[in-house]
Simulated scan of single mutants.
Amino acid sequence: MSEPTNTQLGIGDFGCTHYRRRCKIVAPCCNEVFGCRHCHNETKNNEEINVVDPHDIPRHEIKKIICSSCDTEQDVQQYCINCGVCMGKYFCGICKFFDDDISKQQYHCDECGICRTGGKDNFFHCKICGCCYSKVIKDGHHCVERAMHHNCPICFEYLFDTLREITVLPCGHTIHFECVKEMEQHHRYSCPVCSKSICDMSSVWKNLDQVISTTPMPITYKNKMVWILCNDCGVNSNVQFHIVAHKCLSCNSYNTRQIQGVPSSSCSSRVEETVR
């Protein structure tokens, strides 16, 4: 089948704030017309609007689109049946997705079930994590089951199909990249899910060593011992109490918290399994 002759008609003239494309979608859930699924979801879940039935569009169930060039309603397809215009240079018949900006290097991942950006050759699908990651971390990432099938622990946006850049922390948990940067601005350097350190903190630990050595405790507390749990390695330690911080005897991290009572011998392993 030959390509229609006027496929370039209206390039750059149509679309919404999310995508450049030459069609609108008819939402199967409410039968209303929107620029894209994000336009629908933002409208139908906007708390400032009196929405009777808040919901997200079932993207794979979209069956009808409307050509932005000639206003012809038709089944989902890349080229308009009336004027022949190309609805989007990138087209996925599974996701019912159109986009003219192919510089994003879109591709459809069968295992994710949705379209991704960044180029198929640059990503791999981790079956345990249940999502696509950059090949840069293929041999070194820590697997967490269904790692992106939850909300960002900072902004609470669902991560699996977010449009914003995500990053994988050393512990394996995922979070928006800009949310990590915001955490760092507030001097927060531990995972908001499992509390493990998100970067190399060795220089900070050395500074704390110096602070503690120059901050003697009153005689009342000189022999006071406390049990601590290390958030980084999951090991319990019995250490001398100090007002500044407590150092893990196993990995020398100060990312610890004081716990009550004497932990059982299996406590460390149970905690380690939990944070994983």
Rank of each mutant, 00 (worst) to 15 (best):
D99E: 11
E272C: 09
R257G: 12
R22V: 04
F156A: 12
G118P: 07
T174S: 15
T167D: 05
G15Y: 03
C16V: 04
P216R: 10
N255W: 02
I137E: 08
T162K: 03
I137R: 07
C248T: 03
K196F: 01
K127T: 15
T7K: 14
C23Q: 03
Y19S: 00
I259L: 04
E145M: 11
N236Q: 08
Q105S: 14
N41K: 07
K96T: 01
L9M: 10
E111A: 09
T167C: 13
Y79H: 12
V33M: 05
N252S: 15
L9P: 00
I154A: 07
S203N: 13
S69Q: 07
G15N: 06
V193M: 13
C132Q: 02
D161Y: 08
S268V: 02
C30A: 08
C92T: 01
T220D: 12
L163Q: 12
S253V: 04
I57A: 02
S265H: 13
C115S: 08
S103E: 14
L163F: 13
N41A: 13
K247F: 03
S197C: 11
G93W: 01
N223Q: 12
E32L: 08
H125Q: 09
F177L: 14
F34D: 03
C23N: 10
F156R: 13
N255L: 03
P263G: 10
V275H: 05
L229K: 11
V204A: 10
G113P: 04
S197Y: 01
G88K: 04
T43F: 12
D100S: 07
M183C: 13
I166L: 15
R22G: 06
F97K: 00
T214M: 07
H176L: 10
Y107Q: 07
D161N: 13
H60P: 00
I57G: 01
C132H: 00
Y107V: 04
